[in-house]
Nucleic acid binder design. Structure first.
Lengths: 241, 241
DNA sequence: CGTCGAGTTGAGATCAGTCAATGACGGTGG
DNA sequence: CCACCGTCATTGACTGATCTCAACTCGACG
């Protein structure tokens, strides 16, 4: 136990600039603290919510790493995103009052459960929160546009390069290295997200290693040449010249 | 001119059950009428908004048909959606106060411009509107999950079949035939949306014609066997048996 | 130390892409 | 009214990226 009891509240959560609106006054901060009904711990491999379950709350990830995926009746599986600390999951559930995807922890995780009723109530009163909720949803829409571009028009190398750059960029924003990362997901999960088979993901990693762009030791990745990755993502540009 | 002047208002718009919340009282209805700042006519081929432009409003489509697309610096283009009457576009602009995609009319169109400031203001007061805005954004997120599944794991025939079924279903909900439709977009635009080249789209149409599933006369499509299309979308199921 | 899941690598198959020729339609101007 | 042009669509032949199937390796864990 920590000798100094840290108040468990958004207002002094070190992730607040990631998942909360900025520029709130003390009163507003206090009210937002009340948004979080409970903290919930999720073991690696456990699901936070599942397709079909009733939607009641959004979740802010405090620690850990999640994937969200949809499954068709015929067993096809599509990973729709990987989420890390400070990100919000559950937005898919709003439209029909139940979730349409599964959220699975890829490592032990802790989330803040925020009942959506409370969010709506409070965002009627705190404009910054209202705006914030809108922005979070809009951001997700824009992110998915980017994934559509990736899936619709990029080749395997470009997809993987874009994926790695996106991951390190997000990790970097959270204080981690911009050159090293540990993948929390399998090659198959990466492949599912990127619309590739796991063998293709593996081969593409190997190609990057051959080219001296990254070092790969299992799930530990070290980026040796960020610029090369960026060039790969935009390689079409080169080809057009 | 229509001898009886029809008040131009959401409350008696024949699309209201598509783009407005249900179960409002008269007062709420009146206030929502005030959401629409102006109607705007967009000629075929013209853009409603463009990547980079300042975001100020959402648009409800009254008539016509739009595509939204993103373009990378290197000229790659990805159609992110096709929108028809009753649907809302512009959600991508909320997060950064400017649009991140282009919206182009594929036929002469008319939209209701709803300043986002007004929407936020009013949705603080009218709970049903707040809920409605959230649902619209969530629906878009869920739709994009579906597109990710399509792009990430379906083959050409499955993609086109899913696309056709989706289109007729939406058209049917608007009172059009469930078996006939006129495509407002080129093969290239369909291909961009589905992550295929235009030749593949064309060939796949031809295959469907050969198989007696549809009739194709340029952009005029008649569906002869809806069940076959559904089977194609789920063909994985068959293969798994 | 053996087992199991995850990852790598190879060889061959396949689906979609590329390049190119041709055809259909609609609008324009003589 | 018709010829011409441009855009869109179709089709064929060939190419190539990714998938599939299969063998093998690695590392974690009981």
């Amino acid at each position: 136990m920590n000798p100094i009891a840290i108040k468990v509240a958004c207002s002094n959560c070190n992730l607040r600039e990631l998942c909360m609106p900025l520029g709130l006054n003390q009163d507003e901060l206090d009210r937002i603290d009340s948004l979080v009904a409970v903290r919930r711990k999720i073991k690696r491999g456990a699901t936070l919510f599942r397709n079909g379950e009733t939607f009641t709350a959004l979740y802010a990830i405090r620690t850990g790493f999640f994937k969200t995926s949809i499954t068709t009746e015929d067993g096809r599986d599509q990973v729709t995103g990987f989420q890390m600390a400070g990100e919000i999951i559950g937005l898919d559930g709003i439209v029909n009052d139940h979730h349409t995807c599964d959220a699975v922890a890829l490592e032990d995780a802790e989330v803040c459960e925020m009942p959506f009723e409370r969010i709506e109530e409070l965002s009627r009163e705190v404009n910054a929160l209202q705006r914030h909720v809108h922005k979070i949803m809009s951001r997700e829409i824009v992110r998915e546009h980017g994934v559509m571009l990736l899936l619709g028009s990029m080749r395997a190398e470009e997809r993987l390069a874009a994926f790695l750059l996106n991951l390190v960029q997000r990790l970097h924003a959270r204080g981690f290295s911009a050159l090293e990362l540990v993948l929390r997901m399998t090659r198959e999960e990466i492949g599912s997200y990127l619309g590739l088979k796991l063998e293709t993901v593996s081969r593409t990693f190997s190609k990057f290693v051959e080219d001296g762009i990254v070092e790969v030791k299992q799930r530990h990745i070290r980026i040796l040449d960020t610029e090369a990755l960026k060039r790969i993502v935009n390689q079409q540009t080169q080809a057009c010249l």
